[in-house]
Structures are given as structure tokens and as C-alpha cells.
Design a protein around this nucleic acid. Structure first.
Length: 659
RNA sequence: GCGCCCAUAGCUCAGUUGGAUAGAGCAUCUGCCUUCUAAGCAGAGGGUCGCAGGUUCGAAUCCUGCUGGGCGUACCA
């Protein structure tokens, strides 16, 4: 629809420009006129041509306009603003095309995306403590991005990597074994929220390490035992990690986030993924052994410009340690192996087992969750990995490590895969000093003066995801009960949808490289630019149709005929704008697939909801006496509510039955 | 030291291949519930787009320098 129209226009104009002025452009970029009365698409190309052919822009624009208005879908062209080419679309044609497309469940989307699997890796929380708001930003970005790619027709596999043999799990194990002297059986008997319990244990371990040199040594000893496997410490570590994973999956299910596969670091080690990757890296000289200086005894990758022959002291600053002197592998090393596997370049595969879905999981009835394993369970598994493109949703502080993973691929000669390894980066969620004190975290004098304080699992400083969700649900329930008398179960369900809408919208509306300085009051708001505002617009629209049916009337069928629509849309710019904006959804999503800015989808949904609310206020549809006008108003309402609802779906938000 | 990022209304933020009069929300003030739900709508005030140069027909956006802040640069991830 819109895509076809702009592509046709572009094609015709490129040709026209070449014929008239002998100038060849690769592409033309359309912009949006400031007001809908000026048209839907604007092209400032005449300004650029003016310089090249030394003619006034208005004259060039006029000449181009002369033969650009005859294309299908275009209703007219005019020159404005001293040289802009403004295009007016055929209003009725677009409205009808959109209505039909929506009736087919396509929301205005046309033409499929090229095949080829995309892997999106997100969430990746260290399984040693409860999830906090920072993790929620990662998961909502990743999940909504996946929804957008799938909307565009891409085949997407979602992976949530479990670092079950890493330092952070080892730290909690040290806390349980060495500080609390607990055995596996005793830990297994701990009731209540285990992720909350470990949150506190983890926060205490730093102190324990600082108390003595011997305490500190337990970290390395425990990590080695965890990596080696087959000992009580490793068993305890796996109990902790998997129990926390279940807690994370449950938390994420609450906010409609799901996964296809849970790859575990333990299998990367024990199925010799790392050994294989290590051998490849050594063979290509991408890593080398250091026998002197500060990196003595380690295998390293040189990340700088300096050559190996240069002065040792200069080179070692550019070296990234891949294998430590005690023989254990760093996270980056394992990540290189994992990344190779994702592209199907390792020549090895995991075994897979079905993994139970968390309660209330958001996937449909056909949704399955798998986990990697040392041996399969007999159920035939899908073909995981073998991606054409990989997005790793990881915060921007890990940009350096991600660049090393890519450098590893490049060093092995996998240039295309290196280019298709995309670090989906975003800034952290931090707490304002005021928020910290409100939550009871004491701050130092210097921290109090900062613009924000980093969330830190190590210090136990942060807002737990489940706590925030509980607070949101409680507040939403209060609002629901103030408006409606409903069975408890329904009220709770509505409150939940509103809470998730508020939370996901709040986390997604910022651009990726904006640090979110978390403000509890703002996060708990349901007014203004929030998820519930957008949800409310759809609920209001739905009420119109509900009431209509109660009176026995029928809404106009989307795919039916709409006599008189042409004049109606021509005469009402505001209403036409609503239709046009509704038709833009696929373009917005396509843009996001390129720039990864989900905030643009939030903005889109919000502004469409805003325009709808204005329309809702201005036209009282059910009491409209002109039956034809009433049908048009209903059609527009239907188009808009369905597009907003789809946008909300892509944001991972549901529309409550009542608000 | 080096690398990356940020600075736009009182506050929180949009403004993404350079385009028409720089926009939202919150907060403040003034109105609007006998209507399809006021989680809403209308209106008002509020700007040296950090500073200084440069490129351009055109700069919040691109380049250079400066100021202030954040992050990274671990045998943590």
C-alpha cells in the first residue's frame, strides 16, 4: 500500500529527473508535510537539483509535478514552500485497501521479507538472583523487537542464554556453602521466593570476600568446581541456577516475554564447543599464548593496532584475555563459540530437551520451549541455530566485549557473519538518588550528588521486577475497582493487563541510548503518554461497537463496499489523517527493523490514540443521524482501533476488556 | 591517557539517512461529565536546542574545538 505507492513514485521521479536534467540519484527520501492539508508525502529533491542544474527550485518542482500526478494511488501533486513537491494520496483507495488488508489480518503490510533465519538473543540474566528493572528493559526491547520482525514476516528464533557456570552463580554458591554452611538438601528445602533469597545472599558475598584472603580464594575454587561438574558444589550450582531460571521465566511470563530455546553455558563447555572454537582460533593465529608480563600464562586476543613485535608493555594493553592462567575460559571465549554455533559454523550441535513453560506463559498453544542438554529426551527437536543474522540484545557497557566476539569471527574468516552479528545495544536503567533513598538504600555523600546511581546486583541495589509489577497491579486494581464492580478474577485480569501496559510502554518509550533514571512515580503513572492511555483509546472504541450491537445494529464490514466514502474523506482532513496514520503502521515497523528504536512504535501508538481521542470527543457516533456518515465514522473507528491494538500487541501489551 | 555516549521547556523525554512555524507528557493556571467511560478533551504560559566556529539554499541534526556529565578500557559479565 503505502510502500508500493512511494516506490512507484520514487521510480517514476528518478526516471523523470534523469530525463529532464540528466541527474541520477540512487534513491529519493520522502518526508512528511507539516500539516495533512498539504498532503501525505513531501519531497525536497528540487532544492538539491536547483544547485546542480542552476535553476530555481520552485520551477524544477513545478516541472516534476507536471507528470508525477498520474500514478495509481496518487490523487494530486502540488508545489509548496518554495520547492517542495507535495503529494496527495487517493484517500478512498487507501482507506479501502487498508480495510481489506486488516480484514485479512495483514494490517496494511505487503510483500514478504526475504527468507533466512534471524536469531535474537535477549534477557540473559545471570541465574543467581531475582530479575530487576534493568533486566526488564533488556527483555522488553528484545521481545518487542522479535514481535516486530515476525510481523514483517521474518523467521525468528529467540534464545535466552543461561550463564549457569559463571562467576556470578559461583558467588552465590560461595555464599550458601561457605557463609551459611548449607548443603544441597538444605538449600533445596528453602521455601518462598528463592530468587529473592539469593538476591540477599549475593549482596553479602562481596563483604565475605573482603574479610580475608582465604575467603577470596573460594571464588576461584568454586568456579573451577562448577565448571568441572560432577561434584557436590557443581550440583548445588545447578540447583541454584535452574531454580532461579524458573523464577526468571515466571517473571518474564508476567510481562508477556517468551523464548524458544535456553542455551546453557555448561553444554558449551561439556559438549566441547569451546575446545573446538579454541582450536580454530589457535590455528588461525587469532589467539596466542603469553609467557611474560602481566598476562603471563594466558591465551589472549590482540584488539589493537600494535604488532606483536612491538614493545611488550604497549602490546599487552591491547590484549584481551580469552583463557585465564588457571585454565578457565572467560565469558567472551565461550561467547565466541556460541556465536559460531548460532551461524552454524562450529560443526557441532547441542542436544535438546523440552522445557516446561512457566505458568501463564504468553505463547500460543503451539508454543514450545527447549533447553540444551548433554543428551536428548527422544523428542525430535527443531533445527536450532544456522542463522543468517544474529541480534544480541546487550547493554551498551558490553560493547567492547561484543566487538571482540565479532573480531573473533572476522579472524576466522567469517566476514559475512561478522557483519551480520549485530549488537543491539541500549543504555542502562539507573536509579535517581531520590529514588534510592525512598526505597531505603543509604547513599554516600558523593553518590547523592550524582545524576543517577547504577543498579547493582552485587550491592543489592535495585528495584526487583516482581516488586514493581506487584505495585503496578495493586495500583491498577484500585483504579479498576473505583470505576467498576466486577468479579474479583476479572478485575485482577484487567489490572494485570494495565500494569503490563504501563510497564512495557514505560521501558520502551525511551530511545536506546538514553539512560533511564528510574522514577517510581513516573513508572506508576497511567495518565498522559503511557501504555494505559493507549489501551484506553482502544477500549473506548470497543465500547462503541459493543453498544452498537446491543441496539441490534451491525457495524460495516471492513471488506465490504463503502459508498460515499470518497467525498467524506475528501471533506474531512482530520478524519482522513486518522486513516492515513493508521495505514502507516507497517512503515513504522519496517523503520524499527532497521534502526531498532522501539520508542518510535510507542510514539506512533500514542499519537494515533491521541488523534482518536480527539475524534471520539468531536464526533458522537452512536447518535449520528445520517446513516451513511455513521457508517463512515464506524469504519474509521474500526480501522484505527485495530491498528492501535496491533501496535500494542507488538509492544507486548494487551487490551483490557474494560477500563 | 584512550574509546564510546549524553547535554533540547521548571521536570522527564521525542525529534534516525540535514527540510516547511523545534514537539509530547508531567507539573502550573483556566474551562468541559444529563452524551459511545473524565485513565479523557479544549485552552494558556513556558525554548540562547551546553558554548564557539565551520559546511550548506537550508543545521537541534553533519564537521572541528571547548565546557560539563556518564560509561567502558578486569585473569567479572
Amino acid at each position: 500500500m503505502l510502500l508500493t505507492i512511494t516506490r512507484n513514485l520514487e521510480h517514476a521521479l528518478l526516471q523523470s529527473i534523469f530525463e529532464k536534467y540528466g541527474v541520477r540519484y540512487d534513491s529519493l527520501s520522502f518526508t512528511v508535510p507539516p500539516r495533512i492539508e498539504l498532503g501525505e508525502l513531501a519531497l525536497p529533491v528540487a532544492f538539491d537539483l536547483a544547485r546542480k542544474v542552476r535553476q530555481p527550485p520552485s520551477r524544477i518542482a513545478g516541472e516534476l509535478a507536471a507528470d508525477a500526478g498520474r500514478l495509481p494511488g496518487v490523487g494530486g501533486v502540488e508545489v509548496a514552500g518554495g520547492g517542495y513537491l507535495n503529494f496527495h494520496l487517493d484517500r478512498e483507495a487507501l482507506a479501502i485497501a487498508l480495510a481489506r488488508s486488516i480484514a485479512e489480518g495483514k494490517f496494511g503490510l505487503e510483500a514478504g521479507e526475504p527468507a533466512g533465519k534471524t536469531i535474537v538473543e535477549h534477557t540473559n540474566i545471570n541465574p543467581n538472583k531475582a530479575a530487576h528493572i534493568g533486566h526488564l528493559r533488556n527483555a522488553t526491547l528484545g521481545d518487542s523487537f522479535v514481535r516486530c520482525l515476525r510481523f514483517l514476516g521474518r523467521q525468528v528464533e529467540v534464545q535466552n542464554y543461561l550463564d549457569n557456570t559463571g562467576v556470578q552463580v559461583a558467588d552465590v554458591v560461595v555464599g550458601l556453602e561457605r557463609m551459611q554452611n548449607r548443603t544441597l538438601a538444605e538449600v533445596a528445602a528453602i521455601g518462598g521466593k528463592f530468587d529473592y533469597f539469593c538476591w540477599d545472599v549475593y549482596a553479602q558475598v562481596s563483604d565475605f570476600y573482603q574479610r580475608s584472603e582465604e575467603n577470596k580464594q573460594w571464588r576461584s575454587r568454586t568456579l573451577q568446581a562448577v565448571e568441572a561438574g560432577g561434584n557436590p558444589t557443581a550440583e548445588l550450582a545447578q540447583h541454584v541456577a535452574m531454580r532461579i531460571v524458573d523464577a526468571h521465566l515466571a517473571t518474564m511470563a508476567r510481562i508477556n516475554v517468551s523464548y524458544d530455546l535456553l542455551p546453557r553455558e555448561s553444554e558449551i563447555l561439556h559438549l566441547h564447543f569451546w575446545d573446538t572454537a579454541f582450536r580454530l582460533l589457535k590455528e588461525r593465529g587469532a589467539v596466542y599464548y603469553v609467557d611474560e608480563g602481566k598476562n603471563r600464562g594466558c591465551w589472549v586476543m590482540n584488539t589493537g593496532e600494535a604488532q606483536q613485535e612491538a614493545v611488550r608493555a604497549e602490546v599487552e594493553d591491547d590484549e584481551k584475555i580469552i583463557v585465564r592462567s588457571d585454565g578457565t575460559v572467560t565469558y567472551v571465549g565461550k561467547d565466541i563459540a556460541y556465536q559460531l554455533w548460532k551461524f552454524g559454523l562450529l560443526g557441532l550441535d547441542f542436544h535438546y530437551r523440552r522445557y516446561p513453560l512457566p505458568p501463564g506463559h504468553p505463547g500460543g498453544p503451539g508454543h514450545r520451549l527447549w533447553i540444551t542438554a548433554m543428551e536428548g529426551d527422544g523428542t525430535p527437536a527443531p533445527r536450532f541455530g544456522h542463522a543468517e543474522r544474529v541480534y544480541n540484545v546487550i547493554d551498551t557497557r558490553q560493547a567492547y566485549l561484543q566487538s571482540i566476539v565479532v573480531q573473533g569471527l572476522r579472524a576466522l574468516g567469517y566476514t559475512a557473519q561478522a557483519e551480520n552479528s549485530i549488537h543491539y545495544s541500549y543504555e542502562m536503567v539507573a536509579l535517581t538518588p531520590a529514588c534510592c533513598e525512598e526505597l531505603g538504600f543509604p547513599l554516600s555523600e558523593s553518590d547523592r550528588k550524582r545524576p543517577y546511581v547504577e543498579v547493582s546486583g552485587r550491592k543489592g541495589l535495585g528495584v526487583k521486577a516482581d516488586d514493581l509489577l506487584d505495585a503496578l497491579e495493586e495500583k491498577a486494581l484500585g483504579e479498576v475497582e473505583a470505576r467498576h464492580t466486577l468479579p474479583a478474577e476479572e478485575a485482577r485480569r484487567i489490572a494485570h493487563a494495565i500494569a503490563v501496559g504501563a510497564l512495557r510502554y514505560f521501558l520502551l518509550r525511551f530511545s536506546r541510548n538514553t539512560v533511564i533514571a528510574f522514577d517510581l512515580k513516573e513508572a506508576l503513572s497511567f495518565d498522559g503518554e503511557t501504555g494505559p492511555y493507549v489501551q484506553y483509546a482502544v477500549v473506548r472504541a470497543g465500547n462503541i461497537f459493543r453498544k452498537l450491537e446491543e441496539t441490534g445494529e451491525k457495524a460495516p464490514a471492513l471488506a465490504g463496499d463503502h459508498p460515499g466514502l470518497d467525498d467524506f474523506l475528501r471533506e474531512n482532513d482530520e478524519i482522513w489523517d486518522l486513516v492515513y496514520q493508521a495505514a502507516r503502521l507497517p512503515e513504522v515497523v519496517r523503520q524499527i527493523s532497521q534502526n531498532l528504536e522501539l520508542g518510535q512504535l510507542c510514539k506512533y501508538a500514542f499519537s494515533l490514540a491521541q488523534k482518536f481521542n480527539l475524534f471520539y470527543h468531536k464526533y458522537h457516533i452512536l447518535s449520528e443521524t445520517d446513516p451513511q456518515k455513521k457508517r463512515h465514522l464506524l469504519l474509521v473507528t474500526d480501522l484505527v482501533r485495530r491498528q492501535i491494538e496491533k501496535a500494542l500487541d507488538l509492544l507486548g501489551c494487551e487490551v483490557p476488556s474494560k477500563m
